[in-house]
Simulated assay, not measured.
Amino acid sequence: MPHMTTGLFVGRFQPFHLGHLATVKFALKSVDDLVIVVGSAQKSHEQRNPFTAGERIAMIRAALKADDGVDMGRIMTIPVPDVDVHSLWTRQVDMLVPAYNIVFVNDPFTLFLFRERGVKTVEPPLQERSRLMATEVRRRMAEGEKWQELVPAAVAKAIEQIDGVERVKAVTQQDYHHHNHNHH
């Protein structure tokens, strides 16, 4: 019997969108178990990170549960906060997640950090689209455009339940004022 392989899928999932769902399915084809690492777990209520780790985990869980093509028994979701020293972040991941063989990640810097340590990495397909998509979801929310089609239905429902769009609008305004009125 070949040994079991475990993959990590690293992201911030602000919010979890259709590109992320596609990556989960892509990763499950090549590993037995998948650990979804929710990065910047300590952050929320800001423009790039509007949702809490708990909210993001709930969104991911809802989306995966609603999808017949995904076996929840093979998936774990673990929040990992940032650290002050970038090069130590992958060590922090090692401490907080089970042993893994391979990392799926789209963010170039995170990819670099794992590669620098000789960890096997895979850039999931649709890189450009999935890299830009969460930014686009947040932009559409902030500007009152239609965003629902970019995320699984279960995620749209979860965001509506927590008044997520209002929060995105509020933190976008707040960041805008913050950055534009602090010319001391």
Results as ranks from 00 to 15, higher is better:
residue 74 R to E: 09
residue 31 V to P: 07
residue 24 V to S: 00
residue 113 L to E: 15
residue 157 K to D: 11
residue 76 M to T: 13
residue 122 V to L: 08
residue 164 G to K: 01
residue 19 G to F: 02
residue 86 H to Y: 13
residue 87 S to G: 13
residue 19 G to T: 05
residue 78 I to N: 09
residue 54 G to V: 11
residue 53 A to Y: 07
residue 150 L to W: 02
residue 135 T to G: 12
residue 56 R to N: 03
residue 84 D to G: 10
residue 7 G to S: 00
residue 44 S to I: 00
residue 87 S to W: 14
residue 154 A to V: 03
residue 76 M to H: 11
residue 89 W to K: 08
residue 37 V to L: 02
residue 33 D to P: 05
residue 14 Q to H: 06
residue 142 A to C: 06
residue 12 R to K: 14
residue 86 H to N: 14
residue 73 G to P: 09
residue 20 H to P: 11
residue 98 P to R: 12
residue 95 M to S: 15
residue 6 T to Y: 08
residue 140 R to A: 01
residue 148 Q to P: 03
residue 183 H to W: 10
residue 7 G to C: 00
residue 179 H to K: 08
residue 175 D to E: 09
residue 66 A to E: 06
residue 34 L to S: 07
residue 147 W to I: 03
residue 163 D to Y: 02
residue 168 V to C: 06
residue 182 N to Q: 04
residue 93 V to N: 11
residue 86 H to M: 12
residue 10 V to P: 04
residue 125 P to A: 00
residue 39 G to L: 03
residue 162 I to A: 00
residue 136 E to C: 04
residue 63 A to S: 04
residue 139 R to N: 12
residue 22 A to V: 01
residue 11 G to Q: 01
residue 7 G to K: 02
residue 83 V to L: 15
residue 165 V to W: 05
residue 164 G to D: 06
residue 175 D to M: 01
residue 123 E to M: 10
residue 110 T to V: 12
residue 15 P to I: 08
residue 90 T to L: 07
residue 152 P to G: 08
residue 135 T to I: 11
residue 66 A to M: 05
residue 148 Q to T: 08
residue 23 T to G: 04
residue 86 H to Q: 14
residue 180 N to Q: 09
residue 78 I to T: 14
residue 75 I to W: 11
residue 84 D to C: 01
residue 143 E to K: 14
residue 100 Y to A: 09
residue 156 A to L: 06
residue 49 N to D: 13
residue 137 V to G: 04
residue 59 M to W: 00
residue 64 L to S: 04
residue 23 T to P: 04
residue 81 P to T: 12
residue 38 V to E: 12
residue 30 S to H: 08
residue 64 L to T: 08
residue 34 L to A: 12
residue 102 I to P: 00
residue 99 A to M: 10
residue 132 L to V: 10
residue 107 D to L: 02
residue 109 F to T: 11
residue 99 A to W: 07
residue 36 I to R: 00
residue 76 M to Y: 05
residue 80 V to Y: 13
residue 95 M to Y: 09
residue 77 T to K: 04
residue 141 M to R: 05
residue 180 N to Y: 04
residue 80 V to I: 15
residue 158 A to W: 00
residue 156 A to R: 01
residue 45 H to P: 02
residue 115 R to E: 14
residue 156 A to G: 01
residue 56 R to W: 00
residue 2 P to M: 14
residue 160 E to S: 10
residue 31 V to G: 02
residue 104 F to H: 03
residue 82 D to P: 01
residue 23 T to N: 02
residue 147 W to C: 02
residue 89 W to P: 15
residue 55 E to A: 12
residue 145 E to K: 15
residue 112 F to I: 12
residue 179 H to Y: 05
residue 83 V to A: 09
residue 181 H to K: 09
residue 82 D to H: 09
residue 56 R to Y: 04
residue 100 Y to P: 09
